[in-house]
Write a protein that binds this DNA or RNA. Structure first.
Length: 742
RNA sequence: CGCGAGGUAGAGCAGCGGUAGCUCGUCGGGCUCAUAACCCGAAGGUCAGAGGUUCGAACCCUCUCCUCGCAACCA
């Protein structure tokens, strides 16, 4: 464990949180796994006035981005430009205070990653091997496993991918597929030789054994060490550093660190068979290689922004580097990246406090299945609401920390969320602060009362000891990355406050000691002491809760009319934080109760979203094509059935997006005899402003149906092409509205 | 027998050789300044299952079952 004792030897802290992959929104599981614990730790360190930089950023390379682009019918660049700012804002709204949120598409990152590769390659730390890979001649590209489909050799599913069959779950390699087909062109791929650089992890087995299994056997989490042991014992293999793809960081075109000039040798000069040549222009760095270097480029950018030197953070031995990640990321941060760092001459991480996973209402979280709570959704539903506010961000932070999967997988339930808020934040913490304030205003005239040492009793002394003890405990727990326990300790201190006040019952003292409207001197002193200590405790709670619930701490500072400097950790444990005679504000409720209806609404939303997702589930372009082409002819009907359908031509006169619905547009359609409201699920395909004035064909005698609370009176006919794109069915030339279609 | 982590009251977790504990929830009683807390009391567990070591096991060993993760072109 990193004890409090050796913290003074640390010159600076560099804290990283796993780079979110910019192919979609991130959910609360991600938040609980890496970002929230990292943020708590950083806020604590900053309160300690230690030198600390907290870096993160979007990971924007890899195959999944272009695949997501295909799904959304756009470009890879558009995908990352869409998700990067949303994710960044989501973090901000939830109080995750990165010192920099960078992105791997930034030129500075490209340079940094290329330099890194260059150094390793020049030092002979990389190997070059040739291998045969599937190649699509039509599109002139080598195919990543995900881009190849074929028949699964295990279950005969026709839509198995090159890396895995999603039907039977078998792990595959492209060679195992029967009749492989490129998803890019639909053609059969050919085999072609290609050259790749590898990181020979096998050369570093000894180092890893010593470093992880011996040095960090006891101070890293058991699951982390166990996972590493599993990998090392399994035999480390060289890992490809490059790949044939046009989305990513190009290899640095240099020989012996000098730019490659025209006419330079195609392959390597003598003794430099690893050198990159002009032939390698189509290769990029593998995303696993470039992504963690993003921590370094982010640090550089932070230094530029703040006029600091970034180098000590990556080279000085007294820097403490801590990576916060989820358990899926252990191997990259404990084995692969450290090897890279060691070869490049950087410092190694001090700890990698990986969390397990968080389930949701009894099932794994999964964005693709719609079974998740996205940060973006939570913010919209709870924070940016009339009865929401920053406090609701803190509520999520509280519950996620309270159920943090530090030692094993844990589970998020809306009922648990409600209970944690209502019984702990509202009833214990919020109530203590509130009753202290109310009583202080009632019995002490809204001012901090004096403390009379002559009548100090055991209860007072005990409370003071409890405060000081809590500070030490919280500190030790935070240093040991036990955030769940640390938070519990803070709430427990509030619990002790409630008990103390109950035992002292100043409201009863006021009643008992008041004779003919005058409070006795002893009574006054007793009340003063009690409320004085309760107020000092409130100030201490503010300092202790600050790393966990920063918005609440800020609110408390306002109520106590103190500057944020009071939040510095060295003030924790002091019982003279609020000056005697200082007048304080009226109490303001810190948290609100969450009602059953709100929880039920969230549960309904979750259940309906999983249904919707299944309906609109799309995969690659190829898959859509296959599905559409295979759509069978419907069952035969008689003419009378057809005649029942009343089809008319109408003109769209107004269109707007339906709030809180991804796919719905609310349209007003002029049918000649009337103008109707029709809700149509076409928002993903058309912008409202683009379709106003268009003529369409409408089913006018369809029974009305409510969608998202809006009654839809009819249905617009659309044709769907093989790529899943929608087209209006309308008359060749503009005709009168209300015309019948037969 | 691929590897790793985990399976303890309704929920979430701690305990890792001395006979089961914490928080929330539930039920009964007291008190009341408060978005009500606090106090007293109660119900609720064959510590996944089986076997073994031991005077004694939730804790050590063996096997089985279940959950999650990883198994290298996947971030």
């Amino acid at each position: 464990m990193d004890t409090v004792d050796n913290k003074n030897k640390i010159g600076r802290y560099l804290i990283t949180a796993a780079l979110p992959y910019a192919n979609g929104l991130k959910h609360i599981g991600h938040l609980a796994g890496a970002y929230l614990p990292a943020d708590i730790y950083v806020r604590y360190l900053k309160a300690q006035k230690r030198e600390v930089v907290f870096v993160c950023g979007s990971d924007e390379h890899g195959t999944a981005i272009p695949i997501q682009a295909m799904k959304e019918g756009t470009t890879a660049q558009a995908i990352i430009d869409k998700y990067h700012p949303i994710i960044e804002q989501n973090f901000k709204d939830l109080g995750i205070a990165f010192d920099i949120y960078h992105r791997t598409s930034a030129p500075l990152h490209h340079e940094t990653a290329q330099e890194f590769f260059q150094v390793l390659n020049d030092n002979g730390d990389l190997e070059v091997k040739e291998s045969e890979q599937y190649y699509d001649e039509a599109t002139d590209t080598f195919l990543a496993d995900r881009y190849i489909k074929g028949t699964c050799p295990v279950c005969a599913n026709d839509n198995a991918y090159g890396d895995q069959c999603e039907k039977c779950g078998s792990t595959l390699s492209p060679d195992m597929l029967i009749n492989p087909v490129s998803t890019l062109s639909g053609n059969a791929p050919i085999k072609k030789a290609t050259k790749h650089w590898y990181l020979p992890l096998n050369r570093h087995e000894e180092f890893l054994r010593d470093w992880i299994l011996k040095e960090h056997k006891d101070d890293w989490r058991t699951s982390v060490v166990g996972q590493c042991k599993s990998w090392i014992d399994g035999g480390l293999q060289p890992r490809a550093v490059t790949r044939d793809l046009d989305w990513g960081i190009r290899l640095p075109l240099t020989v012996n660190s000098k730019p490659l000039t025209e006419g330079a040798p195609l392959l390597a000069v003598e003794g430099q068979r690893n050198a990159v040549s002009k032939d390698d222009a189509g290769k990029v760095l593998y995303v696993w290689f470039d992504a963690p270097i993003g921590y370094i480029s982010a640090t550089k950018q932070w230094a530029l922004n703040n006029d600091k030197d970034w180098k000590p953070y990556w080279y000085a031995p007294d820097t403490k580097l801590v990576h916060f990640v989820g358990k899926d990321n252990i191997v990259f941060h404990c084995i692969i990246f450290p090897v890279m760092l060691k070869l490049h001459g950087n410092i190694l991480p001090t700890n990698v406090p990986a969390n397990e996973f968080m389930n949701l209402e009894g099932d794994k979280m999964s964005t693709s299945r719609g079974w998740s709570i996205e940060m973006d959704d939570y913010i919209k539903e709870w924070v940016k609401k009339e009865n929401g506010g920053d406090g609701m961000a803190d509520v999520l932070r509280y519950y996620l920390t309270q159920i943090a999967p530090e030692t094993k997988d844990s589970e998020f339930t809306w009922k648990g969320f409600q209970d944690a808020n209502n019984s702990e934040l509202v009833n214990i913490f919020g109530n203590f602060v509130n009753r202290t304030y109310v009583l202080m205003h009632k019995l002490c005239g809204g001012k901090v009362p004096a403390f009379h040492n002559d009548i100090i009793d055991d209860a007072d002394k005990q409370l003071i000891l409890d405060i000081k003890a809590s500070v030490v405990k919280v500190e030790n727990l935070l240093e040991g990355y036990k955030f769940r326990d640390a938070l519990f300790e803070v709430i427990d201190l509030a619990r002790k406050g409630n008990k103390y006040m109950q035992d002292k019952e100043p409201w009863m003292v006021a009643k008992r000691q008041t004779v003919e409207g005058v409070l006795s001197a002893e009574g006054k002193k007793s009340i003063d002491n009690c409320l004085h200590l309760c107020l000092q405790l409130t100030a201490n709670l503010t300092i202790l809760i600050n790393p966990f619930l920063p918005f609440t701490a800020a609110k408390l500072c306002k109520m106590m009319k103190v500057v944020e400097r009071m939040l510095e950790w060295e003030n924790a444990g002091r019982i003279d934080l609020l000056k005697v005679g200082y007048s304080l504000r009226e109490p303001q409720l810190l948290f609100r109760k969450i009602e059953n209806e709100e929880i039920e609404a969230q549960l309904d939303k979750l259940k309906s979203s999983i249904v919707n997702r299944q309906q609109i589930k799309v995969d690659t372009v190829e898959e859509i094509k296959t599905q559409k082409e295979l759509e069978p002819v419907g069952a035969e009907i008689v003419f009378d059935d057809f005649a029942k359908i009343d089809l008319r031509v109408g003109t769209i006169v107004a269109a707007e997006k339906v709030p809180k619905a991804d796919k719905l547009l609310q349209l007003s359609v002029d049918l000649g005899f009337e103008t109707r409201t029709i809700v149509s699920g076409i928002a993903l395909h058309f912008a409202p402003e683009d379709i106003i004035g268009k003529q369409v064909t409408v089913v006018v005698n369809l029974a009305p149906r409510k969608m998202r609370g809006i009654e839809s009176n009819g249905m617009i006919l659309m044709a769907e092409d093989t790529e899943g794109k929608l087209h209006f069915i309308n008359p060749e030339n503009a005709i009168n509205n209300g015309a019948s279609v037969r």
